[in-house]
Design a protein around this nucleic acid. Structure first.
Length: 1060
RNA sequence: GCUCGAGUGGUGGAAUUGGUAGACACGCAAGACUUAAAAUCUUGUGUCCAUUAGGACGUGCGGGUUCAAGUCCCGCCUCGAGUACCA
């Protein structure tokens, strides 16, 4: 009987499905093993040969683990919400649920053909309400939690409310965007809206304004991906940066834990490194630069202004106490502090009543001060001001009385017109600071300018009149670029001076304030301090705009480039002079903290993740709004299902598609309206690995018991494109669910392997531009040709099927060809991404049909290392198919009859078998699937040469090969007399090293590192005797050329090297 | 730009800890079988020199460490992936 793979494969697929061979038990005496593939998104194009690559590898490993006696959980399901189905819906009007269902069916059909050992009873789909009910539930958990920094974990928001009621927020250490401090009394007095607004700043998922790429013409937000050259990829409409109120996830609260957790998991260094960089921890300092108003020049005496600001910044206790009572019109009228009137700074003044309140300084009998005070009093009274003088003690001890006397004085005074020219408030404005973060606080003295993001809130306020136009123009230009373009473009240095200056916190020198689009509003504080001496980008910027560059490094030349090394000594740096970088950093931070202008700080590049999408085909939020405040839907009402809409497009006023839903279309409707946004693609995929453990649980997302049993995913296989998205978000959710006590582990995936992409091999034909004839590859240079893709199904070994080509597309029906001399048409080829438009998509179906699933499985593995990207080419598939046929023939005689012999196996066969057992097991343990196939080939070739048909040997070989080629092995297994279906749980053969022992070893003998000849010597010969034997051999004489060897290296059992 | 990864025959790749470079397979060539073709089997196949024997060179490029480098170090080049709303 010939190897009839079609019959064999369909028979065993049916057997496995009917007997639920791969059902995982939720409890077992065996050790557990959880092997998972990354969630596929079922696109309309179906599977191409790249998709199953990882699934085959994980399936081989899962089957191997079953043979090794593990209880294996190996599930599959679909990440079935997503943009492509929605795009398709927009184009065709068909409901995305329908296309998704179709795509799922096609995926399943394709997957079924490849013989995976999935437990299909556990299938999950993110777009199924049974599933997203729990995605919504987890969202609610996040909403009802805050990050307690003291406990270093998430905690119930209700606990936080208790603290607020009793202590206010001053003592709370939390990951929060709340800045203002309030007391318990204040909290309790706030109305609900205010309280909710404050709580929002603590919640782990919260509403906030985030910058998005807004396309007004499409009425939608676009991914950076969807924007090409500043316009939308679809339609070419302009795109602008816009703030939008959206849900965010406070993933930043977990920055440090996400970073540290990497140490505990077995992932590739590259992917860990990518996550580390994504989280981007940097240690440095936050520094505040005071902004000098551009209008400051209008005041005669700059010193006075500075003095006023200084006094304002460092008030005495009495001043502070009194200001608390006067500010914000508490007496019903506006007071100003540290105000300049003519040449005098007064402590407090009410301009509309011309009342001045001065707090007496202790003169200690200083004559000059007393004289000054007298002049001041007289001058001010001449201008029509009334002055109240108070002592420190009076203000502190008898605040009430003081206030009463001020209040009385106010009542007695008439209203006056304010004299604007004396208004210091207007001149210096509110105290403005620009906060920057720097990893190099040691270079603080080298700050020659500051650069703000064009969107920075302060830009509008500080820009001088004569720069307004230029700044606005620059802002407009910047708003048209995507973040990525802004970061990527380093060749074009752009920026715009605002006309404003900041004051250097140590030297007081004026520092120009620029805006530049390489500074991003969303990163850090949206402002950087530029140190051209120490940073190349700043250096380039300074050179380009001709800004001064101060060299702050001792003995370093910075005329040609910045000096970014962290070595050397500081110079021109005040108190840092002569210090090393390390010491200067410490001292700089110390001095900043002492002066109150900065603090040592650790920041993370990681940003909170935007969790809203203005799309239809995603999870609805369990949220409604009442008076514009968000509220959660009760658990017993979940899930909030997707309502029907009349179109999958935004509304005319730019609201998301869900805004189209009628009230009745919602299964749950509360408040004024439901949330219109939906959740992003990563919502459902962040926790799905937990649902597989307990997929039909209706009361919990997963039972604690089952989560404890199955625990972490032991092996997770998928593409590296998920490095910083899915893999980071699911780590975040896992840590959160652990914090809340729902699961007992805080890393989801113990071991991760990234499969490389399978690239397509495109075929090309060459059309002569003059005649329109198609020129064969070898002759294309003789003509002026255009290269066109040809469908790879029409090409075999680069030879084009001419008739097929003519029938392929109507425009080629009358194609004429210029052939090679041998009469064939040869196509050109190139390796590219597999895509429909390149006509290079290879589906697994046709290969399964032609060669069988076992061949496909082995061939995909045989292509090369799992992790590496590789081009797809079916050239070698014949060889792999041949191997399976040879394997089959080992069990059959020349007439095709099943013919094996029981009895003792001979030594050679045992050696082949055990060599193979060892290699296969070693290979599987290091996930080297490709070398596994090679080793099977070697084994089958050797046994074939030996004419081995020994039952014991072949039985072990069947078990060995079965993870790779399960169908053929099941067939042979039953032919060997075993019960059908028992192969999957058979015992993996045990390696016995005794069969590999050899008496002799052929030593490669090298002279000066070059291998010259081999010499067979006993394996157990001692080193010195090997030396003698080598030197005594006549072949050595030629290479020694009569000289004595300088040195000899003998590695027993490996190599001999003679140094001449 | 930044971050990460990869470059080995005509092709996919092997070489696991620094120890025989090119296993295994494809392709190609020659031969056997055949009227012929296909299929199958046998042999050869890194490049260059040489009739042979044999020799020189050889793992993207340039240096280095070592008895010994595809493997380690330094500096480049090329290609691929990610870069926060594709999943």
């Amino acid at each position: 009987m010939e190897y009839n793979f079609q019959d064999i494969e369909s028979k065993w697929r049916q057997h496995w499905a009917e007997n639920k061979t791969f059902r995982a038990a939720d409890s077992s005496d065996k050790p557990k093993y959880y092997g998972l593939d990354m969630f596929p998104y079922p696109s309309g194009a179906g599977l191409h040969v790249g998709h199953p690559l990882g699934y085959i590898a994980s399936d081989i490993y899962a089957r191997f683990k079953r043979l090794k006696g593990f209880n294996v959980l190996h599930p599959m399901g679909y990440d079935s919400f997503g943009l492509p189905a929605e795009q398709y819906a927009i184009q065709t009007g068909q409901h995305p649920a329908i296309t998704t269902e179709k795509n799922l069916a096609r995926y399943r059909e394709q997957l079924d053909k490849i013989g995976f050992s999935f437990d299909w009873d556990r299938e999950v789909q993110t777009s199924s309400p049974d599933y997203y009910k729990w995605t919504q539930w987890i969202f609610k958990q996040l909403y009802n939690s805050w990050y307690n920094v003291d406990a270093d974990k998430a905690d119930d928001i209700s606990n936080l409310e208790v603290v607020f009621e009793n202590e206010g927020n001053a003592t709370v250490k939390a990951e929060t965007s709340q800045i203002d401090i309030f007391t318990a009394a204040e909290w309790n007095a706030f109305d609900e809206a205010t309280q909710q607004k404050i709580l929002m700043n603590y919640r782990l998922t919260y509403l906030a304004d985030s910058m998005v790429n807004w396309c007004p013409a499409l009425g939608t937000v676009l991914a950076n991906d969807e924007i090409k050259d500043g316009v939308s990829e679809r339609g070419g409409h302009p795109v602008v940066q816009k703030l939008m109120r959206q849900w965010s996830m406070r993933i930043t609260a977990y920055s440090e834990r996400l970073l540290n957790g990497l140490e505990t998991i077995d992932w590739s260094d590259s992917i860990k490194e990518q996550q580390r960089n994504w989280i981007g921890k940097s240690v440095g300092a936050a520094v505040k630069f005071k902004v000098q108003s551009p209008r400051i020049g209008t005041v005669q005496d700059e010193k006075l202004v500075e003095q006023a600001k200084e006094m304002r910044a460092n008030p005495t206790d009495a001043e502070a106490a009194l200001w608390t009572e006067l500010k914000g019109k508490k007496l019903g009228i506006k007071f100003r502090k540290q105000h300049l009137i003519t040449d005098f700074i007064v402590d407090f003044v009410c301009l509309s009543k011309k009342l001045i309140v001065e707090i007496e300084k202790d003169h200690h009998g200083n004559e000059e001060s007393i004289a000054k005070e007298k002049i001041q009093t007289k001058t001010l009274e001449d201008l029509g001001y009334k002055i109240i003088r108070l002592s420190d003690e009076e203000v502190v001890a008898h605040t009430e009385q003081v206030l009463k006397s001020i209040s009385d004085a106010l009542k007695s005074l008439p209203n006056q017109e304010e004299e604007s020219n004396t208004n210091l408030e207007e001149i210096i404005g509110e105290e403005q600071f620009i906060e920057v973060f720097t990893t190099r606080p040691d270079t603080i003295f080298g700050v020659n300018f500051l650069v703000l993001a064009p969107e920075h809130a302060l830009v509008a306020e500080i820009t001088t009149d004569d720069q307004k136009e230029a700044v606005a123009a620059y802002q407009k230009q910047a708003s048209l670029k995507t973040e990525r373009d802004r970061q990527a473009d380093v060749k074009n240095i752009t920026g715009q001076f605002t006309g404003a200056y900041a004051l250097h916190p140590f030297t007081g020198e004026k520092v120009q304030i620029w805006i530049g689009d390489y500074v991003l509003a969303g990163y850090g504080t949206g402002a950087v301090m530029a140190v051209p001496a120490g940073d190349q980008r700043d250096w380039d910027f300074a050179k380009h705009f001709d800004i001064e560059i101060l060299n702050i490094f001792e003995g370093v030349d910075i005329s040609e480039a910045a000096y970014a090394e962290k070595e050397g000594k500081m110079n021109n740096s005040g108190f840092l002079d002569g210090l090393s970088v390390r010491k200067a950093m410490k001292l700089a931070i110390y001095e900043m903290e002492k002066k109150g202008i900065g603090t040592g700080k650790t920041t993370y590049r990681l940003r909170d993740a935007v969790f809203s999408r203005q799309r239809y085909w995603g999870e609805p939020f369990p949220v409604y709004y009442k008076n514009d405040l968000p509220y959660l839907i009760e658990d017993d009402q979940l899930p909030v299902t997707l309502p029907e809409v009349d179109a999958y497009l935004p509304t005319e006023d730019g609201e998301p598609p869900l805004a189209r839903a009628e009230k009745d279309a919602w299964n749950v409707f509360e408040g004024d309206r439901m949330e219109y946004n939906t959740m992003p693609g990563w919502a459902g995929s962040s926790w799905y690995f937990l649902r597989y453990m307990d997929p039909h649980n209706e009361t919990e997302f997963v039972s604690k018991e089952k989560a404890d049993y199955w625990n972490q995913v032991d092996l997770y296989i998928g593409g590296s494109e998920h490095a910083t998205g899915h893999l980071l978000y699911s780590r975040f959710w896992t840590k959160f669910l652990k914090d809340k006590g729902f699961i007992s582990f805080d890393e989801p995936f113990k071991k991760l392997i990234n499969q490389g992409m399978i690239l397509g091999r495109s075929s090309f034909v060459y059309r002569d531009k003059d005649s329109g004839k198609f020129v064969s590859f070898g002759k294309r240079k003789e003509y002026k040709t255009a290269r066109l893709h040809a469908d790879i199904s029409l090409v075999d070994n680069d030879k084009l099927d001419l008739e097929g080509f003519k029938n392929w597309l109507p425009e080629y029906a009358n194609a004429e060809f210029i052939l090679e001399d041998d009469g064939t048409y040869i196509c050109g080829s190139e390796v590219e991404k597999m895509s429909k438009s390149k006509y290079n998509v290879q589906t697994p179906d046709e290969l399964v049909e032609k060669f069988g699933a076992d061949t496909l499985r082995c061939y995909e593995m045989f292509l090369g290392p799992l992790e590496q990207a590789k081009p797809w080419d079916t050239k070698g598939i014949n060889g792999v198919h041949n191997f399976l046929r040879k394997f089959w023939r080992l069990f059959h005689d020349a007439e095709g009859n099943f013919a094996i012999e029981a009895g003792e196996a001979d030594k050679k066969a045992l050696k082949t078998l055990h060599k193979t057992i060892k290699k296969i097991e070693d290979d599987l343990n290091r996930f080297s699937f490709n070398t596994g196939v090679s080793n099977f080939m070697i084994a089958v070739n050797e046994l074939g040469e030996q004419n081995c048909n020994n039952k014991a040997i072949l039985s072990d070989l069947v078990v060995l090969i079965s993870p790779y080629a399960p169908h053929i092995c099941e067939e042979l297994w039953t032919k060997l007399g075993n019960e059908a279906g028992t192969l999957s749980y058979a015992e993996f053969p045990v390696f016995n090293p005794d069969f590999l022992v050899e008496a002799n070893y052929a030593y490669p003998v090298s002279f000066n590192g070059k291998m010259r000849f081999k010499l067979e010597l006993p394996t157990n010969m001692p080193k010195d005797e090997v030396e003698k034997a080598v030197l005594a051999d006549e072949q050595s004489q030629k290479w020694l050329e009569g000289k004595a060897p300088k040195k000899m290296i003998v590695v027993p059992g490996k190599i001999v090297n003679v140094v001449v």
